[in-house]
Design a protein around this nucleic acid. Structure first.
Length: 560
RNA sequence: CGGAGUGUAGCGCAGCCUGGUUAGCGCACCUGGUUUGGGACCAGGGGGUCGAAGGUUCGAAUCCUUUCACUCCGACCA
């Protein structure tokens, strides 16, 4: 490719709203441009990267027997209603009708569509297992798109679905996918962790996420310093800390205007871990809503995703003063014995000698015991840096990551809902046991830059760089430089090298800056040294320049 | 969804408060020339329904109303 013919509008200035390196360099380098909130165009360079990543994904999946398909971007609403996700997915699901008033959704993920495709076509256990995937556009109407390609509304994703006759077969495929995803990320040159995760809107039993480590990540990952344990903060567990509650006199105490955990612990002169914190939320369901209270230790933090899963609601929202009054709750004085839907953190089970609200204005209850109380105990709390690992007792740390892949053991949730069965070895109809596996292709474009860049621009990795090499002709009006550069370009192209010839009538500094911004691994500078028989190789990462004889440059380049 | 901000040339902005010739600047772009190892210089030039609709006024980028778009912050601690 000749730079003079390439549409790669580079700019000196970053878009005013861009804060992340990936967003800045992708726009400045002319890889992408914004169309609207969370929607991007891919320009020629961006498209090449996208295709290169897709290719790696396809090669690794095909190697382990997955089959590529391509499903319709729009899906009939009927399927989503059958699975129950039409409501559960919420506003992120874009719904619309066609001219005949048939209802459709823009696919945010394709479990329903894939089950529908397989249903009635895969009929016997003899045809199982089967793993079908596609690399296709997805649309999720995100509440707040941001960070360029990292959180868009329209994006390219590889989504795969496996169908099995039983759990064992699913587990095998799940492990194979975990291994394959690892290979894909290795080839792309990314540093990542596999973490335990919450299943969220997709549902299912077990799930793991592939997190690329990056300081600008949106996700918090809990990692153990001593063992392999790693989990998304939404799913992370810890060893229950040893806390000795001091003896507190049983009974009601007058606590005028003492409402916060801080005030309570000061008033009783105890650590905040001796108090019980009540967090009130309104749980929104498809056709009704109700007030629920979560009780956790005063020193802990409520993990909202855990709370949401426990409540089985679609969404948890904050509650107004009035809504509190309406159900008879007294802000600041709510205790576990209140007559309302409630959940209590697992770590409070059997705890004694605690302080909690007395459900009466200006009163708290001391010496409260959870022993022998029939509450719904669930894991509700958020793990903190310094907590101890639930596997090995090591110290936990929290780092930032970007989710690039997510794999699920789904079970028969969708096949049951959509009535998709096969005949098992006894000739009996059984719903498919399923797994589902996703990789964010367009997000990976940004992630590579997020993990590999410097203050001048991107540093594309071997398998993601649009070109392996740029030949920079320093002065295009110098005939000797021009013909040498052209010659080298033609020879390398014949050898199949992905090479870009910067033949533009620009000054040297301008072309060097573009080379640094675009971030291809190497450049050959054909310039002043040519009269002495020398050219230079520049390594993009180190920016080191090495002089090479013009007669040796071709062979030298072919060695890489 | 809650709160805030911004829409003026391809990009970044000024002008608006206090209405008044032909709406301005930097970058980018086009033409000619000089230059050619770190984003050059000189000269000339093109490009705008001032986000949209309505209103006030002799007169609106500027004031008022409505609307659309984009962006940022937030959406644990009762």
């Amino acid at each position: 490719m000749r730079f003079s013919k390439l549409f790669a509008p580079t700019t000196k200035d970053a878009p005013k709203d861009a804060v992340l390196p990936s967003h800045i360099y992708l726009v400045r380098g002319g890889f992408i441009s914004q169309v609207g909130s969370g929607v991007y165009n891919f320009l020629p360079l961006g498209k090449i990267v996208l295709d290169k990543i897709s290719k790696v994904v396809k090669e690794e999946l095909d190697r382990v027997g997955a089959l590529q398909t391509e499903l319709g971007f729009i899906t009939p609403s009927k399927l989503w209603k059958q699975s129950g996700r039409y409501d559960k997915f919420g506003k992120e699901l874009l719904r619309f009708s066609d001219r005949k008033n048939n209802e459709f959704v823009l696919g945010p993920t394709h479990e329903e569509a894939m089950v529908d495709l397989v249903k009635g076509r895969v009929k016997s256990y003899k045809q199982l297992p089967i793993n079908l995937y596609q690399i296709n556009t997805k649309f999720r109407d995100e509440a707040r798109p941001r960070y360029g390609l990292l959180r868009g509304r329209e994006f390219l994703m590889k989504d795969g679905y496996s169908f099995h006759e039983n759990e064992e077969s699913l587990k095998e495929e799940f492990a194979l996918m975990e291994q394959t995803y690892g290979k894909i990320l290795d080839r792309l040159g990314l540093e990542y962790r596999v973490v335990f995760a919450d299943s969220g809107a997709i549902g299912g039993s077990g799930s793991k996420e592939f997190m690329v480590l990056a300081k600008n990540g949106e996700d918090d990952i809990v990692t153990c310093a001593s063992c392999d344990y790693a989990a998304n903060i939404e799913a992370a567990k810890r060893t229950k800390p040893k806390i000795d509650n001091p003896q507190i006199a049983k009974g009601k105490t007058h606590t005028p205007d003492i409402k916060t955990i801080e005030d309570v612990s000061k008033f009783f002169k105890v650590n905040s871990s001796c108090a019980v914190k009540a967090i009130v939320k309104k749980a929104i369901f498809a056709d009704f809503s109700e007030i629920v209270v979560f009780f956790i230790r005063g020193s802990d933090t409520l993990q909202e995703t855990k709370a949401l899963s426990a409540s089985l609601a679609l969404e948890l929202v904050d509650v107004s003063e009035k809504e509190l009054e309406d159900v008879g709750l007294i802000a600041g004085f709510i205790g576990p014995d209140v007559e309302i839907k409630k959940f209590v953190d697992l770590e409070l089970k059997d705890e004694e000698s605690l302080i909690c609200g007395a459900n009466e204005l200006d009163y708290h209850f001391g010496g409260y015991s959870f022993k022998d109380r029939e509450f719904e105990y669930v894991d509700l709390l958020e793990v903190c840096k310094g907590d101890l690992c639930s596997c090995c007792g090591g110290v936990l740390d929290i780092t930032k990551g970007i989710e690039v892949g997510h794999i699920f053991e789904l079970g028969d949730k969708y096949s049951k809902a959509l009535d998709a069965n096969f005949l098992d070895r006894n000739g009996k109809a059984k719903p498919f046991v399923m797994g589902t596996y996703g990789i964010g292709i367009s997000r990976l474009v940004a992630v590579v830059v997020e993990q590999h860049h410097d203050e001048k621009g991107s540093l594309w990795t071997k398998e993601t760089s649009p070109f392996e090499l740029t030949i920079i002709i320093s002065n295009i009006k110098d005939e000797a430089q021009k013909s040498f550069g052209e010659d080298l370009y033609q020879k390398l192209k014949e050898e199949g090298v992905e090479v870009l010839l910067d033949d533009r009538a620009e000054r040297f500094g301008y072309k060097m800056s573009d080379f640094e911004l675009l971030g291809f691994p190497k450049a050959v500078i054909v310039g002043k040294g040519l009269v002495d028989g020398e050219v230079q190789i520049v390594d993009r990462k180190s920016l080191e320049k090495t002089n090479i004889s013009k007669d040796e440059i071709f062979d030298k380049l072919m060695e890489f």
